[in-house]
């Protein structure tokens, strides 16, 4: 079991709204993520899960409301978005590795150009991360030479190379063949055990039940219900949650 630090608020979301033109995607989301906590976000597609995640690192601009990360209001217009994003690692459904760079080059790109780490140090750290995700032998392979599961593990290593305070996962296993899901979830499980703060949008209910500290059920742009995996999966209170779970479990 990982050690829990003293409860400390890492992310605080206050009444977050997001419109796409006339479409009201997020209708007032408020929640907190503690340091070291693993929060899973589940819910039907189109319910705003991805948008919620993307609003928290301003890949989408929130329409109204506030997001505080370590006390800094990132919705403030004067906030340095680039600096903010260095503190947040993001893993995408479609991996989005840079196809013109090898794995190790993918990993060391941001540390070298954003954090201004020397090439030698970035390479060393990158190799250590590749070792950690079990792909040290693929350091000089290009992304299209790797399987989906391997690409996603490299993408995780790339995000970790910036030494972020928190990691966002946007359906990290949804684009993978079934036999490759396990290897990615193993890497994520290891990160959770090391105490990384994680927000995970996923449909892998077994993984969430095992790893998550808290589950948010998001539907129609609202947090319909939240609680521990035990509460959500075994004793859901809301009818909307029961309907959803009866379909996916």
């Amino acid at each position: 079991m990982r050690e829990k630090c003293a409860p400390e608020v890492m992310i605080e979301v206050v009444d977050l709204h997001k419109y796409f033109k006339d479409l009201h995607v997020l209708r007032g989301i408020s929640t907190k993520v503690m340091r070291g906590e693993v929060v899973a976000v589940i819910g039907p597609s189109g319910g705003g899960k991805s948008t919620f995640l993307r609003c928290m690192n301003r890949l989408e601009e929130p329409s109204s409301g506030h997001v505080y990360i370590e006390g800094v209001d990132i919705t403030h217009p004067y906030v340095d978005v680039n600096k903010l994003r260095t503190e947040i690692g993001m893993v995408f459904q479609s991996f989005n590795l840079f196809p013109h760079l090898t794995c190790i080059e993918n990993i060391k790109l941001a540390p070298m150009h954003v954090r201004k780490v020397s090439e030698k140090e970035a390479t060393e750290r990158g190799m250590a991360l590749l070792e950690k995700v079990g792909l040290a032998d693929k350091a000089h392979a290009y992304p299209d030479q790797l399987s989906g599961g391997q690409q996603q593990r490299v993408a995780i290593a790339r995000a970790l190379a910036m030494q972020p305070q928190v990691m966002f996962f946007d359906e990290p296993t949804s684009a993978l063949d079934p036999e490759m899901i396990g290897e990615v979830l193993d890497v994520m499980r290891a990160m959770a055990e090391e105490g990384m703060t994680m927000v995970v949008v996923s449909h892998e209910m077994g993984f969430i039940r095992e790893v998550a500290d808290r589950v948010l059920f998001l539907a129609d742009g609202l947090i319909v219900e939240e609680g521990t995996p035990e509460e959500i999966f075994n004793h859901p209170k809301e009818q909307r949650t029961k309907d959803f779970l009866s379909k996916v479990l």
Binding site: K83, R85, I88, F92
Partner: peptide, 27 residues
């Protein structure tokens, strides 16, 4: 170049010009 490339680069904290120079233009 796929928009996912821009998102990945920006999510890593690269500026717009860095994204252009290091990720988009080489592709």
């Amino acid at each position: 170049v796929h928009y996912g490339q821009v998102e990945a680069a920006r999510a890593l904290g690269l500026t717009r010009l860095q994204t252009m120079r290091l990720v988009i233009l080489p592709q």
